[in-house]
Deep mutational scan, measured.
Amino acid sequence: TTIEWNGTKITVDNPQKAKELAKKIAKKLGLTVKVHGNTITIE
């Protein structure tokens, strides 16, 4: 699972952990999480 935001890509083996990490990042930055299959985008 890949997390993408602002040109940065982070690959996380565990999809559940990836989703939790994305939510934490999005919350800190005041952004939203969008899931597209194996890609999680923070916008």
Rank of each mutant, 00 (worst) to 15 (best):
T8S: 09
I25Q: 00
H36Q: 12
L31C: 06
G37S: 03
K34C: 09
E43F: 15
V35K: 03
V33C: 04
V33R: 00
K17C: 15
I25N: 00
T39Q: 08
I40P: 00
I3Y: 04
T11V: 14
E43W: 12
I10S: 01
T32S: 11
T41M: 11
V12A: 04
T41H: 10
K17N: 06
I3M: 06
G37N: 07
A22G: 03
G7W: 09
Q16H: 12
G30R: 03
K17R: 12
N6Q: 10
P15H: 14
A22H: 00
G7Y: 10
L29H: 14
K27M: 12
K19N: 07
A18P: 01
V33F: 08
V33N: 00
K28H: 11
A18K: 00
I40S: 00
I42W: 03
T32M: 09
K24F: 13
W5R: 04
K9S: 11
K28E: 13
T1K: 03
N14R: 03
I25P: 00
T8V: 14
I42K: 01
A22S: 02
E43H: 11
I40N: 00
I25F: 04
I3C: 07
P15T: 05
V12G: 01
D13C: 13
T39D: 03
T39M: 09
K19I: 15
T39S: 09
L29R: 04
L29V: 04
D13T: 13
H36Y: 09
K17G: 04
E20M: 13
A26C: 07
K19L: 15
A18T: 02
T11L: 12
V12H: 02
I25T: 01
Q16I: 13
K28M: 10
E4I: 15
V35E: 05
T1Q: 05
K34Y: 10
Q16S: 10
A22Q: 01
K34V: 11
E43A: 12
A26V: 04
T2G: 07
E20R: 15
N14D: 14
A18V: 03
G37L: 06
L31Q: 04
N6G: 12
I10A: 01
V35N: 03
H36F: 11
E20Q: 14
T41K: 10
V12P: 01
P15M: 14
W5Q: 03
T1D: 05
K23W: 14
E4Q: 11
L31P: 00
K34G: 02
T2D: 07
T32E: 07
K19W: 15
K9I: 13
L21F: 09
T39A: 06
N14E: 04
K24A: 12
T41W: 14
G7M: 06
P15S: 07
T11F: 15
V35D: 03
E43Y: 15
A26F: 05
L29E: 04
A26Y: 04
P15W: 14
T2E: 08
T1W: 14
L21V: 06
T11E: 09
E4W: 12
P15I: 11
T11G: 02
L29K: 05
K23E: 15
